[in-house]
Amino acid sequence: MSDDPADALAAVAALRRLADQLEDAAVEQAMRAGWGWPKVAEALGVTRQAVHKKHLKRLEAAGVELRRR
């Protein structure tokens, strides 16, 4: 790890961005594979409401066939 504090701070910012991108891609992959919201939420470690609110409209618009359970 570099001695420059700017590097560690920039790594935090970059990891957050990567996690956001990865979450969108991974939830979409799981729902396309037929997973339901509760399983996706549990795998992500968030509530079903949170994952639903964040991703439902996006995946509907993407034409992903969504299982209710």
């Binding site: 790594a11 990891l15 990567l18 991108q21 996006r58």
Partner: peptide
């Protein structure tokens, strides 16, 4: 910035999210 903590952005090979 990812590489400074040993993470490769190129390893992220899921299909891009909508």
């Amino acid at each position: 910035s990812l590489a400074t903590v040993g993470v490769s952005a190129a390893a992220f090979d899921l299909p891009p999210a909508t």
